[in-house]
Simulated scan of single mutants.
Amino acid sequence: MTTDPASFLTALRLSDSFLPVGGYTASYGLEQYLNEDRIEDGDDLQELIAAYLRRVVGPCETVALANAHAASADGDCERLLAVDERLHAVMMPREFRESSTKAGAKLCELLESGSSRVRSDVSGEDDRSDDATLSAADGGDVTAAVAEKIDHDATPGHYPVVFGVVAQARGLSRLEACLAHAYSFVTGLLGAAQRLGRFGHTEIQSLLETLRPVIATVCEQHVDDDITAMASFAPLAEIMGMRHESAGRRLFMS
C-alpha cells in the first residue's frame, strides 16, 4: 500500500461521487427493488449491497479492474482490450452495460481533457474551459491507446477497465484501486437509497460502516484472480435492472 500523497488524493477523487462520470444517475436496479417493496429496512438494504459486492463487484468488476491495472503496468494493450471484451461478455443486462460504458467513456473524456490542459500549460496557452479533469501526463502509450480505441468504438470501454488504467497511471496499487472502486460503488448505492427518501443520513452511515469489512474482503479475495475467473451471478438484481427501464416512476436512469 502506498503512502504517496498524490496517489492517496487520486484514490479519494476517483471514489468520490463528485467525479462527473454519471454514477449519480445510476441505481443498478435498487430503485426497482424499492418500487416493488422488496427492501423494507436497513437490514434488507445491507443484505442486498453485500450480495452485489460478493456476486458482481468482487468476482466481476474487481477482477476486470485488477487485470486492467496489471495490463496497463505491463504496457500490454492487447491484454487490456481482452479484459474489456471479457467484462462486456459477462455483464448480461443491457442497462448495466450501457451505464458502465457511458461512465468509462466519460472518465476517458476527463482523462483526455486533463492531458490537453497539461499540454496547453506547457505550451503557454491559457485553456481553462474544463476544470473537472484528470491529468493523463503519466499515463503512457497504453492510456492514449485505450482512449483512442474507445473513441473509435473499437472496444466497449467499461468503467472498471478505464478506472484500472487511470489508477495505475496515477500510482495506486491494484488493491488500492479495487478498494476505491468498490467503496465508490457502495456509497453510490447508499446515496441512491437515501435520495429515494427511504433512509436517513445516520442510518446510511451506519450501513456504510457495517459494509466496510465486506468491501475489504471481496477486494482482497479477487484482486489476484485471472481474467478467466471473471464472472457475475446476480439474476434477481439483473431482472430488477431490466424492469426498471419500464417502471412507471423513475428517479434514476438505471
Rank of each mutant, 00 (worst) to 15 (best):
L53W: 02
A103R: 08
L134G: 02
V57P: 01
V142D: 06
H88Q: 07
I39C: 01
K149R: 15
G42E: 10
G104C: 03
M92N: 05
A82F: 01
D138E: 15
D141L: 07
E40W: 13
D43I: 06
M92V: 10
P93N: 04
E85L: 13
E40Q: 15
L45M: 09
D121K: 07
V122D: 06
L107T: 04
R38N: 01
G75A: 03
K106C: 12
E47T: 07
S113K: 09
G140K: 07
V142E: 09
R86A: 06
Y52H: 09
H69F: 15
D131C: 06
R94N: 01
S129N: 09
T143E: 04
A147W: 00
R117E: 09
E78M: 07
V118M: 08
S72A: 13
A68E: 02
D126M: 15
E61A: 14
D41L: 02
A137T: 10
A105V: 14
R97P: 01
P93A: 04
S135R: 08
L111S: 11
L48T: 04
S115M: 01
D138A: 11
G58Q: 14
V118L: 12
H69G: 12
R94M: 11
V142Y: 10
E125D: 14
D126G: 07
G58W: 12
Y52W: 13
L81K: 10
E125Q: 15
C77G: 00
N67H: 09
A144D: 07
D76A: 08
C77K: 04
S115Y: 13
E95W: 07
F96I: 08
L80V: 05
V142M: 06
K102W: 01
L80K: 03
A145Y: 05
G114A: 12
E78Y: 00
I39Y: 07
S115I: 00
L107S: 04
L65Y: 01
R55L: 14
K106W: 06
E109L: 15
R94S: 11
A73E: 03
T143P: 04
A70K: 07
L87E: 02
P59N: 03
T143D: 03
V56Q: 10
E98H: 05
C108E: 09
A132V: 00
